[in-house]
Write a protein that binds this DNA or RNA. Sequence first.
DNA 1: AAAGCGTGGGC
DNA 2: TGCCCAAGCTT
Length: 286
Amino acid sequence: MDTQAVVEWFDAHERPLPWREPGTSAWGVLLSEVMSQQTPVARVAPQWEEWMRRWPTPQDLAAASKADVLRAWGKLGYPRRALRLWECAKEIGEGEVPGDVDKLLALPGIGEYTARAVACFHFGHNVPVVDTNVRRVYARAEEGRFLAPPPAKRELAQVEALLPEENGPRFSAALMELGALVCTAKNPDCAACPIKSTCAWQLAGCPEPSEEETARAKKRVQKFTGTDRQVRGLLLDVLRATPHPVEQSALDAVWPDAAQRSRAQASLLEDGLMDVNDEGLFHLPH
DNA sequence: AAAGCGTGGGC
DNA sequence: TGCCCAAGCTT
């Protein structure tokens, strides 16, 4: 892969995301990465600014209540991430965000991607960073397949083999950005691609994915309407909206199917996203 | 290791 | 409209 061409394209097309400003702390980068897990970057930016204003350090977040943290999370989705961030802050204690992949991996809610992103983008370590964008670009440019195969351990070594010795982190960011802006999942803008001339998928004549690959991709997309996830979201909406604990009846009003409603409510209690007080009223955790 | 976990925008 | 997708992690 022409890493130079990818970086030059990035130099010209990089989005001005707030956490890319020089001087952003390790905590700021970690926060941006967690917020961006499965949530579009455009929706993350304002939320990130708000969090950094309220809780600029892990010590600040650790001192906040979980209820405040969950309300500030707003509608970014997957609110367990907010709880994990709060736990991260508690674990860091009076210390600092670690720069080693292994130590980052040990933090709650930090997996293979996020650990490497922080180590690479903040600390400048030249480690492979593999997210859905990188997987897709690699599949197309290197393997000639339109759809990336299911995530596998193998990818780390494959992407590591691409890393230039100089400016590795810059290239890693560029590769992700290329996947986000040009080599997109649905309608890639190949005319704007800096590595079109060497892209394996282009050289193979832009083959359509097989029936099997298409079926696998389709299966990956989860239902939402009518699932427990939707009900959990509706229940949490009630708790986020009111400053005081609510009666069971207020929760019952959001969904007609009682069995599903109780199941969703029980799972929220189990996850620590909901709590009951001694009067039997429900609220966000303290 | 497959499945669960939110939410909203684009087409 | 309904489907597809989005800087994944956990169990």
